[in-house]
């Protein structure tokens, strides 16, 4: 079985700027994959190269085994891209837009699927409306619909939730998860790390055109993020010196970081021995944001 996406030693310059500095990446069919990185890291460039919107200087890219240059027709049929920019053609209605996009991919008589996509994205009321009259959120839905109109096995979403309200986010994620459940491969870029954390099984972090971390979301969290024990002391309470040395004060609470749950027992024992009165205690989950910042900083050193 071909990987959904195979990227081999891809480099790309824009003038003197090195946008992609040798990317190697393989994404298996059916994955929900996250592509993270700060602005300018090369995420959109990589997606553009995959979609054939730019030509790379060296290396090769393939979608479902079809090279994006030499077999561009089959490669593009396998790929649906939701662009980051909110672009639309003001001359047409929503349904015309979708019918034409379907036609570009050589598919006629696609009305049933177009209806289904319109319904799933809650676009029913707007199907006959001109694109220029739609709100930003509605335009975003049409962009997603356009990317799906040819039922591509691989779907790439470039910051699909940027500037989007809660309702649309939920509609969108419900639909995307359903597609993933039906076997579509999903590749996602986002700045909302909690979205990546909850949906992506595997994540690549990009920085200055390089992949600086590539692992399952669980492993990245384990490796780079820490758990936190958060304590609020009762009035007059004082941390024992052993804990005081490793605690950080935050909004009236003491925060103690730890990697292993066995450490919690030790810390609680120390508190008990010191007869330290506690008014509130909780344990925080590790967050992808921490892992992200850790990776980005590690690489800077």
């Amino acid at each position: 079985m071909h990987p959904a996406i195979r990227i081999n030693s891809v480099t790309k310059h824009f003038g003197a700027t090195l946008a992609l500095a040798g990317i190697d990446l393989e994404i298996a069919q059916g994955e929900f994959f996250g592509l993270l990185g700060p602005n300018g890291a090369g995420k959109t460039t990589l997606i553009s190269a995959l979609a054939g919107l730019i030509r790379v200087d060296s290396g090769s890219l393939a979608v479902m085994g079809h090279d994006v240059q030499s077999a561009y027709r089959s490669a593009r049929r396998q790929l649906g891209v939701v662009p980051q920019e909110l672009v639309f053609d003001p001359f047409f209605t929503v349904r015309e837009t979708l019918r034409m996009q379907s036609g570009y991919y050589g598919i006629r008589n696609n009305a049933a699927w177009i209806d289904e996509v319109i319904e799933s994205l809650d676009l029913g009321d707007k199907a006959a409306a001109s694109m220029r009259t739609l709100s930003g959120g509605m335009k975003r839905r049409v962009l997603v619909a356009q990317a799906l109109v040819h039922r591509p096995p691989v779907i790439v979403l470039d910051e699909p939730t940027a500037g989007v309200d809660v309702e649309l986010r939920q509609t969108l994620w419900r639909f995307i998860r359903r597609l993933n459940g039906e076997g579509h491969t999903i590749v996602l870029t986002t700045h909302y790390l909690e979205e990546a954390e909850s949906y992506c099984g595997r994540i690549a972090m990009l920085k200055q055109g390089r992949i600086v971390a590539l692992d399952t979301t669980a492993n990245l969290l384990r490796q780079f993020a820490v758990h936190r024990l958060r304590l609020r002391l009762a009035v007059g309470g004082e941390l024992p010196p052993a804990l005081r040395a490793r605690a950080v004060e935050d909004a009236g609470c003491w925060v103690l970081s730890f990697a292993d749950f066995a450490e919690v027992e030790v810390m609680l024992a120390q508190l008990r021995e010191a007869r330290c009165p506690i008014s509130e205690i909780n344990i925080g989950q590790p967050e992808l944001e921490e892992a992200f910042l850790a990776v980005m900083q590690r690489d800077a050193e």
Binding site: L53, R76, Q101, Y105, G106, Q146
Partner: peptide, 11 residues
Amino acid sequence: TGNIVFVLLSP
């Protein structure tokens, strides 16, 4: 307007 991308993405 950027909508040329829809043609460029297609086969």
